[in-house]
Design a binder for these strands. Sequence first.
DNA 1: GAGTGGTCTAGACCACTGT
DNA 2: CAGTGGTCTAGACCACTCC
Lengths: 225, 225
Amino acid sequence: MTGWQQVQQAVIDRIRAGHWPPGHQIPNEADLARELGCARATVNRALRALAEEGLLERRRRAGTRVAPLPVRQARLRIPVIRAEVEAAGRRYGYRLLHRARDPLPAALRPLFPDGEMLHLIALHEADCAPYVHEDRWISLTVIPAAAGADFAALSANEWLVANAPVSDGEIAYTAGAATAAEARMFGCAEGTSLMRADRITRHDGRTVTRVALTFRPGHVLTLKL
Amino acid sequence: MTGWQQVQQAVIDRIRAGHWPPGHQIPNEADLARELGCARATVNRALRALAEEGLLERRRRAGTRVAPLPVRQARLRIPVIRAEVEAAGRRYGYRLLHRARDPLPAALRPLFPDGEMLHLIALHEADCAPYVHEDRWISLTVIPAAAGADFAALSANEWLVANAPVSDGEIAYTAGAATAAEARMFGCAEGTSLMRADRITRHDGRTVTRVALTFRPGHVLTLKL
DNA sequence: GAGTGGTCTAGACCACTGT
DNA sequence: CAGTGGTCTAGACCACTCC
């Protein structure tokens, strides 16, 4: 009965009971281990998991504290669009609409200092209906192999997850009104609310790719707590 | 040079190099430890982290496989709205607009079988301008103490994180058009695109609270890969 | 039944950082 | 400088599950 999950529960219980209020420094690992009758490694495992969840804050030498404002975190599983469509039992389609070494718009200049870029525009379809519109820029300086990839056969996303080392990035979601062109494409009224995503992927501090996605009307973004 | 991060990198390198294609079963922990010259616990730590990231799939007896389609995951830190506003250097305001034991709408009936509910409507403000509109239902069966809480002084979210044990839940984001009432509240045109969130929080399989949030125009939802 | 990952232990050393 | 968490080790036992 000395599992790390029990240790975790014991800590949670004391926080909930008010014995350890927000901001309070809790005993160090060695003391907790002695008190709970387990090895320090077990306590470490339990506390590390709680810190990842945002319930605790840990710093060397400074010790472990109860987070002042417990920040809840949710996980978003970002599916490859093809998998998302097929999981819904619909037929996936992909059409490459544009591919060229276009000059980089000024707005994106800060992201890609080197400038040698590949520009792709594509449409993902579900049962032959437009599903997601994709406007992507890929740095040929960071990923030279992209110049020779056949993006008409395989979507850029799928090619990149298999061929590009990725370390970090961000996604920003916003709600926006459909332009006239988007309204035509999705068969909706101009001004309809659409979900947009702007995704930047980096490796070693250099931007690998930036993609602007526009989802069909009614798209739902689901996250698990 | 036998840290778990080095083990992790070694595994990633082999996957990238194509030695271990998607779906391939990789050597077991003991063999990998011997080959890389470290303890099995170190290999375990590395592989467990990669499995959490979605790059590997692990099952007892069946071994460890490279995920067929590496599902990238992003983390959303869900801030307490007050902290979000204050972090932007703006003054936070909170107004409780409605509080009553209203009858549960039929649409929400399946979520709360027991039916004794508290209904709250509130507005979060930044620099006196509407920031987020909140429409919340709290189960008094699951959280009886909520009946006596002073939600005029402290937002329901902050009260709940401090007083309600929470195990899991979901958030669903959508883009929608502003209703006439929302347009008046936010000072925007009717039909303006707004980000909405529908959040359900559970404990022990019972729904604790359900909240519908409507964000001011231009809200950006940012996630880190 | 046997092989795999999941976990625990006791001890040790290291890295960081507050004082 | 000293105290804390971060990590590694070698060994052990257990839980699950495929064969």
